[in-house]
Design a protein around this nucleic acid. Structure first.
Lengths: 340, 340
DNA sequence: GCAGATGTAACAATCGATTGCAACGACAAT
DNA sequence: ATTGTCGTTGCAATCGATTGTTACATCTGC
């Protein structure tokens, strides 16, 4: 029992504590901050008094004065996909790693799931005065909005893909290369009738599809089928099932746009008695922790999410300190497991 | 292109905009807030000016003044399990639902992953002046700390189990009943040599084990084996594999403490050529979305996480409004799928 | 015994927006 | 012509902590 509930009336600000201690507010502030300008004896007396009354200075006021919040915004723009849920496993995974990296450095995280209907959604976040920086997970279809803000707001780092000449700093994987790896893996397994599963409005997914096309073209195969699906997991399952029913035996190799999509596909195939990888090969993308736990385990393209999160945080701090950081593009790696 | 980058010097506060508009700061504040006290003509003039310069009032200052932050803290205490990761799927799932519920009501989320080494961790969060309320995910081994804070801090709701007489408001499932359902399911499938997989330091898991014991006792079976495992997913896999190797054929029914544990167990069994549910039946707990996507799909105890999240948010707002809310204990439901 | 150095603490300005109250002009009513 | 009302706007206090500057007392050295 070191900390009691307040015995006397609650102390609400530094001024009250100052009166109680018989000193001025400024002195209390310095004492609680452990500054050397106050006599160590009075400092300890004040600290003891604060502890006794369970007093802690108001962070909002401190942050207003100091103009530094120690809060980083983590934002998911859901531009093209309003029904996508925050509980999307990819987002959750990267969020977990970001949280680890940021809390380690003493930062808190403000989470926003934004549906960018007002076109100044990002301005509003960047300019709120509540944040020391912003991490954006995914570009969605908001490339222009991001560029606009990046032109004046420095501490902004985006998970996504880098277009030549863009202003904003991204961290991501070479999606096209990744798609190509997936294609080569399928083709290497003797598959010739390929399909891409996932919608290509978001640039990341579009590039993965491009890469798949590259691989097909390099082997003289026709352009793979493109099967759209939404990202909200409840609709996704049905859509994927419908696709599988429709394409029937036309396809023997599926490159999925994400691990989640791949899982649904494997599940739908299994439900229909189609063997994976016997009849159809499937690759995922992301290499989420759960890709290893499914049965059969997913063959997938690894994004090294932990390293990516670390890179985002490092870049953010560098930019906040005034440096200019280049975008980071990580190498995708094919992880061969059971589905292809 | 409705919003330009600031053409002229950036406007940093209401006073500057006021000077520019030739009015006082107070008027600008009212105009931007859309209050009816200002002439609609001047109001629109000011709003246009603000838009043109991309000015947005500083939220930190506003919140300090108004004493309302529109931010809710979502906190995971990792008391007994420092290595547990934020990306734990259960936490991520409930966080997703909380985010949906809170953003719907215009609240932002401040995420904290706390390792409660300083014993006033929760005091510090509650008292920071940054939050309108706190949602705690899991009690960990911090029951006393939570009780202490709940005695004076009203807007606090905890996901976890309710002990008779406790002060703090919890939302959760009847864990003991859930454990019992799992046990009955296993016993109903003819299993007689039961085990519980999961560590029982956290009260939730301990109660699930109790329920399992209840079911065993009711059928005249000996008390189920208790196999501890950590919650950090990297260690967990190895620990579970080791358990499986050790117990061999001693056990034919496993009640896992969570879906994640169950998935690892199924995976480990499959790797050893043990058939599920042929040789061994397995049940999970939580009914995460991914429980349905594994192959075989998990038989599990459903917690109805979405409803729970909603209940937490409702209770929080009610408490913030001064009402007293009872703890909510939801009924667990057995979801029969493929593993038992 | 006095000038100067040193250690403490008080004072007051500041961060930026909000809001109760006062003031002012225009207009209507008497 | 005077009083009253209404619609607007300005003034200044406030939220709570931080910090540069100033003021005072004590101590040192000559």
């Amino acid at each position: 029992m070191t900390k009691q509930p307040p015995v006397t009336a609650r102390i609400r600000n530094i001024a009250e504590l100052a009166r109680l201690a018989g000193v001025s507010a400024g002195t209390v502030s310095r004492a609680l901050a452990g500054k050397s300008l106050v006599n160590s004896e009075t400092r300890e007396r004040i600290q003891a008094l604060a502890r006794e009354h369970g007093f802690r200075p108001n962070q909002m006021a401190r942050r207003l004065r100091v103009q530094e919040t120690k809060v980083i915004g983590v934002v998911v723009p859901l531009g093209h996909e309003r029904r996508q849920h925050l509980s999307d496993p990819f987002f959750m995974t990267i969020l977990g790693h970001l949280a680890d990296a940021l809390t380690e450095d003493g930062y808190d995280i403000m989470l926003s799931r934004v549906i960018p209907d007002a076109d100044d959604w990002l301005e509003r976040i960047a300019d709120s005065g509540m944040l020391d920086g912003v991490l954006l997970i995914g570009q969605s279809n908001q490339f222009d909005a991001i560029e606009r803000v990046a032109s004046w707001y420095r501490p902004l780092v985006v998970w996504g893909s880098h277009r030549p000449g863009q202003i904003h700093c991204t961290v991501g994987v070479d999606n096209r290369k990744g798609g190509q790896l997936a294609g080569e893996c399928l083709i290497g397994a003797g598959r010739k009738r390929l399909a891409f599963l996932g919608e290509t409005i978001a640039p990341e997914l579009a590039e993965r599809y491009q890469g798949l096309c590259d691989a097909a073209a390099a082997s003289g195969l026709p352009a793979p089928l493109k099967l759209d699906t939404h990202l909200a997991s409840d609709i996704m399952a049905d859509e994927i099932a419908a696709h599988i029913d429709r394409i029937g035996k036309q396809v023997d190799g599926i490159a999925a746009g994400s691990d989640l999509i791949a899982m649904h596909a494997v599940r739908a195939l299994a439900d229909r008695g189609i063997s994976v990888p016997g009849d159809v090969s499937v690759t995922g993308f992301d290499d989420l922790p759960l890709a290893e736990q499914t049965i059969p385990r997913l063959t997938t393209i690894s994004q090294s999410i932990a390293a990516g999160a670390r890179a985002m945080v490092d870049a953010l701090f560098a930019r906040a300190a005034g440096q200019d950081t280049p975008s980071v593009e990580m190498e995708p790696v094919l992880v061969r497991r059971d589905t292809a």
